[in-house]
Design a protein around this nucleic acid. Structure first.
Lengths: 202, 202, 202, 202
DNA sequence: TATGAATGAGTTTTCATTCAT
DNA sequence: TATGAATGAAAACTCATTCAT
């Protein structure tokens, strides 16, 4: 989850740690005050560093935001694990959703920054795009839907899953497993119903 | 769509028109540059007024944003029209979705500001909340789902509809009718399937 | 000497005056601390204004410097007055130099900023360039020197006159007339001697 | 040209070499980006050293600039070589100018930093002062001008020679010899003409 | 001695808001 | 009421210098 190179020397390790403090502080502040409320001053203060130090780690504020959000979020777009191969479509769907929601649970601050009530709009959009590519891949893999149908179903399903992420963030008492199960319940019937509708309607 | 009181005297009408110019300019700019890119300077310029005048219409920038977004968006939370009374649940669902998407089409700039790629996060959240209340009402009216189920299904469905809104905004060639139909196709089976699942699982 | 438009209304006049205060302050500070020592903060302080006000007069610091130096200095490149027509070359030379040195005397702060001990290098260069065009014109008008000779004599003479300007700035007790006379004494023999040398040497 | 002591031990020689690298880098950067664009960071980078090392060679940036410019430029003020003794005033003048312009050619980067288009103003002034002392000495030696005349002729002639230096820097195809000859042509008549003028005018 | 990360004061610029006209 | 100039509190970013390794 930390893309920084495996620092070997002591000073490299120290530097890596300090950089991470900045990234963590950024996520924290974005989640708390929104992207607009993020100042370099605040970030360095929260990380207990001097302002100038910040610029030895990042060329500018933009780069910090990029790192804080995308360094880990990229994995959302990574290809699914091959172990899912032997399952039924239903099981596969649930497994993938579980994987996703567990990932959310493991990166609460990050997802608060992206999907939470004070999220960063542009990054929210990019995150949804990423979600859509995964949803589209899932639909292609698990259903026989034509591309035209996938084109419009995808954003709706991505929205639905996004709603699940927001719900999970707002209800820490609910587990990733539970959310995966619930979402599966909602999504499953679609794959059975839609093809018929599409041949008669769309 | 204009909540200002029905101005009677001439000066009142003039005032009302000028205020509306500010509101329209604000929506335009938020949709184009995002909330962070909205400056009072820009708004008054676009509305062809002096900066100082702005403060005779709104106490501060915050109030303008509130007005620009919520003066019209409130209707999203208004109770559904009674004419829907005689329809089947399915027809009611589709009619309500159509009403919603038509509303979006009639307020493109506004919805771009709230749901578009440069949307205002806090208002996005509030809009989703509003959407959720309507979805919850619909579920209560059209299904026999228990409140616990409604509690978690609602945010997911609201997310799905939000996805529909975003899709509609991004594809001006698609009609509100078409989107309502598509969304109905996706949502309908849920009401049939869920109850069974819920009694056994949740 | 003030290029600002002839302000008619009262507020325009006031604005014009405030702008001039900034320009004067800038010259003062450049002359005193050099271009590198010029901060917007200092300028507005010296002009007894708020920092923000500065940016209602100039888009940025660069524009102020440009105005402070070149708004008036441009005249250095203006074509010479036609009244010089009837004079002998010698008299013309002296008249032109007098005009120049008087101009310097009337804009001491400005020339201190450009030629003084803490001058702005890039503007010094541009000023010398301007001086060179005038010198070259003078040589063409008053001597029969070939262009190749003018090409290299010009920068040397411009340097000599620049030395005169610096001397005048450093010795306020010396008059422009005196400097014009002295410089004429130095330059005059050149026009007589050079042609011969050039035909045999260069 | 290198004022550092004749290092005897190996480490002393190494230290001397590293110091020179800093000085050379400084000249290079001043000539290229001006004094304002000179940062310790850049200098050490160009010299391929660490920032911290810089402060073991110079107490601060100011000292580096001083060294970069004046360590070699001082020679400009050194007494003329005795071999000139037997020449005529004219020959002596030309020989001295040649010596000067050759010195410029041998230290192009240095003179670019001091006289070039992005020169350092304060050092430009000091360099002109130095030039003036030599010019004044020359005038005392070669002409019978009274001190009052020397006082004002000197800055003008120094300016003229400065113009020659700038011309030489801007035209690498012109030789020091050629420039010395040309400058002699311009200056020579002065010594013949001025005395007469001065007795009647100044 | 050499290194380069850390520091924080200082600089330019923006912008919501006020207020005299 | 309308105007737009004036204000000054941020905010991002730079860079000379220090200091632990």
């Amino acid at each position: 989850m930390n893309n920084a190179p495996p620092a070997s020397t002591r000073s490299q390790r120290r530097r890596s740690r300090r950089r991470q403090r900045l990234v963590d502080a950024a996520r924290e502040i974005i989640a708390r005050k929104g992207l607009a409320g993020l100042t370099v001053q605040d970030v360095t203060e929260e990380a207990d560093m001097a302002v100038g130090s910040f610029y030895t780690y990042f060329p500018n504020k933009e780069a910090l935001i990029e790192a804080a959000i995308w360094e880990d979020l990229q994995q959302l777009g990574n290809p699914q694990r091959p172990e899912l191969a032997g399952l039924t479509p239903d099981q596969r769907l649930q497994a993938q959703l579980m994987q996703l929601f567990q990932f959310v649970e493991q990166h609460r601050a990050l997802f608060q920054a992206v999907f939470g009530p004070r999220h960063a709009p542009e990054h929210y959009e990019r995150a949804l795009d990423l979600l859509e590519t995964r949803v589209a891949d899932g639909l292609r893999l698990n259903t026989g839907l034509p591309e035209e149908a996938i084109a419009w179903i995808t954003p709706l399903l991505a929205g639905l899953i996004g709603g699940g992420i927001r719900y999970l963030l707002a209800h820490p008492e609910v587990s990733a497993e539970e959310m995966a199960l619930r979402t599966t319940i909602l999504i499953r019937p679609l794959s059975e119903q839609i093809p018929a509708d599409l041949t008669t309607n769309g």
